[in-house]
Amino acid sequence: MISIKNLVKRFGPFTAVDDISFDVEKGEVLGFLGPNGAGKSTTMKMVTGYLSATSGTISVCGFDVEEAPLEARRAIGYLPEGAPAYPDMTPMEFLSFIASVRGLSGDEAMKAIDKAADRTDLRNVMHQPIETLSKGFKRRVGLSQAILHDPPVLIMDEPTDGLDPNQKHAVRGLIADMAKEKAIVISTHILEEVEAVCTRAMIIDQGKIVADGTPAELTAKSKHHNAVTIALPESLGEAPTDTLKKIDGVSEVRVDKGANGENRFTIFPKDGAVLIEKVSGQATAAGWDVKALYAEEGRLDEVFRTLTTSDAEIAGRAS
């Protein structure tokens, strides 16, 4: 439903988006990940027609955003970064305005407003000026505006920013509810959010896609993927390291001090090999007094850090 080909955006000498291509289909929830300034928001702004691309094409539901901008925009619900809304209006007035601009009137408009307000839990503040609302409510006003016309494509720039954990949970529930019949793109810094709601995650760095796959596929790129941690009593010292290293498929063993004085050995596999049974077998054979034993799926934040260049590094290089 969204099709992006060779998208490039330059601001003067700076290339914000550097030859990105991807498609998003109905039923997909795509999570855009990346450090600040990676090009996530810029890409979203181009899809929604707020910025025009330097080169490349974007089509939404078959409409090219440059050739048929109004048709493309009708198909899109967009929550811009920071959820801007007219501060002197009440949510009711604001949503009525959005409804009339989107060509809804009378009963149809009322129904759409009711439904959007219910889904975003705005009922109690419908008649208070938006400027007097808390950050969480403002964000939800922006969300209800985006879903008002039940668009086939939903683009949300940091939809849960500024919400408390309960509200975050509710918004993720809302996204999951709508996921089946829509193509959804969200950007976020919160990695757990990607694992919670996204069917697909894309990591962007310096305008380029550096990873694209299901959250599980991305976590599998982590060094910790299938790593096994075994906690052994302090009395054994670091001696088990050598024994563990001899297990077939082990690339590295790291020892940390645990909270209760035990030694935690983290065993990293070669090529994602499954080690837990072997480690467990070794522990039994050696007669170790095992305090804990578990395997990890991987860590998304680790993948994120290895694939992206942090702002600090960029700043360091520039100076």
């Binding site: 929604t48 707020y50 109004l70 925009r73 811009p80 970064e81 601009v101 989107r102």
Partner: peptide
Amino acid sequence: KSGTIELLLTLPVP
């Protein structure tokens, strides 16, 4: 200033 221009210009309005 308030950023609402982004909202306005991404609505289906010529």
